[in-house]
C-alpha cells in the first residue's frame, strides 16, 4: 500500500503524527502537573518500560513480515520457571541465565518451525503456544515460585549507570542494531518484501522459511533475555511472569505505525509508539490515580491510532 505512485511527498507521516501526539501529551502533562517532566523521575519510573521495549523489537520484525507472535508473554513464564528450577538445583546464576535463553530460543524455534515448515497461520500457532508455554511453566513448577538469587543479580535490572537504568542501554543497542538490520542489510529488505508479497520473494529464490524461522526464534531469544531482566527486577521467578505482555507489546508496535498486514513500518515508529503508550499510562495513573483507566486509554489509543492512519491513507490516495 505504501508503494507510491511516483509523487510521494513526505514519507514520515506516521512518525510525524506520533511525534506531535507525544509532544502534545508531554506539554499537557507538564502544564497540569509540573513535576511530570522531571527527567530523573521519568527514568526512575521507566523500569518496566524496558521489558516491553525489548520484546517490541523482534515483534516489529515479525509483524513486518505479516505475522504475529502472541506467545511472548507465555514464553517468559516458561523461561522464568526454567531459570528458577535451574538455579534451585545448581545455584549458579550464569548457568540459569544460559538455560533461560536456551529455553526461549527453543520455544521460539517451535513457533518458527510450525509456521515456516508446516505452513500454519502464525496466529494459530502462537495462540496454541500461548496456552502451551504458560501451561508447561505452571505444570513443571506446580505454581511454586523461586527467589533469592543474590544481590549482584538484582543489579542487572535495578542498577544505574550515569542515572540511566542498565536495561535502557541494552535496549538502545539492540534497537540500533534492529534499525540498521532493517535499513542496511539484504535480510532487512527480505523482511519488508515478505510482508508485501511472500510468494514473489519465494519465487525470487529467497529462503522465506529460514527468514521466518530465524525471526520467531529471535523473538523467543528476546523473551528469554527479557525474563532475565524481569526476574532480576522482582528477584522472583514464577510461572506467571510476563502475563499479558503480548498485548501491550503488539499495541506499541501497531500504534507505532507498523501495518498489521506487513510490509510497512520501522523501528523508529515502534520506539515512538512505546514512548507514547508509556507516557500516556504514567500521565493517566498520576492524574487520576485509577489503575483501570490505564487499560481503557491504551485500548482506545490502539483503535484510535489505526482509525487515524486509515484516514490518512485514504487522503493520501486522493
Amino acid at each position: 500500500m505504501n508503494i507510491s505512485d511516483g509523487k510521494r511527498r513526505f514519507p514520515w507521516w506516521h512518525e510525524a503524527v506520533l511525534g506531535v501526539l507525544l509532544i502534545a501529551l508531554l506539554i499537557t502533562a507538564g502544564i497540569v502537573n509540573p513535576g511530570f517532566l522531571n527527567l530523573r523521575g521519568q527514568l526512575l519510573l521507566s523500569r518496566h518500560l524496558w521489558e516491553f521495549a525489548l520484546l517490541a523489537l523482534p515483534m516489529t520484525l515479525i509483524i513486518l513480515t505479516g505475522g504475529i507472535d502472541l506467545s511472548v508473554g507465555s514464553a517468559m513464564g516458561m523461561c522464568a520457571v526454567a531459570f528458577g528450577m535451574c538455579y534451585s538445583s545448581t545455584g549458579s546464576v550464569a548457568l540459569s541465565c544460559l538455560v533461560c535463553l536456551l529455553v526461549g530460543v527453543a520455544g521460539g524455534g517451535v513457533n518458527g518451525w510450525l509456521i515456516s515448515r508446516m505452513n500454519v497461520h502464525p496466529l494459530i500457532v502462537t495462540l496454541a503456544t500461548y496456552a502451551a508455554f504458560r501451561g508447561l511453566g505452571e505444570g513443571l513448577s506446580q505454581g511454586e515460585s523461586y527467589s533469592q538469587f543474590g544481590e549482584d543479580f538484582s543489579e542487572v535490572a535495578r542498577g544505574m549507570w550515569g542515572g540511566v537504568p542498565i536495561p535502557a542501554y541494552l535496549f538502545g543497542l539492540l534497537a540500533l542494531g534492529c534499525a540498521l538490520f532493517l535499513s542496511r542489510t539484504p535480510g532487512g529488505r527480505y523482511v519488508y518484501a515478505i510482508g508485501h508479497n511472500e510468494q514473489a520473494v519465494r519465487f525470487s529464490g529467497v529462503n522465506v522459511g529460514r527468514v521466518k524461522l530465524l525471526l520467531y526464534a529471535s523473538s523467543g531469544l528476546m523473551a528469554g533475555l527479557t525474563t532475565i531482566i524481569y526476574v532480576s527486577r522482582f528477584d522472583t521467578a514464577k510461572a506467571d511472569a510476563g502475563t499479558g505482555f503480548e498485548l501491550d507489546v503488539i499495541t506499541a508496535v501497531v500504534v507505532g505505525g507498523t501495518s498489521i498486514y506487513g510490509g510497512r513500518g520501522n523501528i523508529g515508529g515502534t520506539v515512538l509508539g512505546l514512548l507514547l503508550i508509556h507516557e500516556t499510562r504514567q500521565f493517566v495513573s498520576r492524574q487520576w490515580q485509577v489503575d483501570e483507566l490505564k487499560s481503557i486509554v491504551v485500548g482506545l489509543l490502539l483503535i484510535g491510532s489505526l482509525l487515524l492512519y486509515r484516514g490518512m491513507q485514504v487522503r493520501n490516495r486522493e
Partner: peptide, 19 residues
C-alpha cells in the same frame, strides 16, 4: 473503519476489561 478485526478486538479486550 477498516481497522483489522484482530486489532479492534485486541483493543476492546483491554478497554472493556478496564471498564
Amino acid at each position: 473503519g477498516k481497522v483489522p478485526s484482530i486489532i479492534v478486538t485486541l483493543g476492546l479486550l483491554t478497554a472493556l476489561r478496564g471498564a
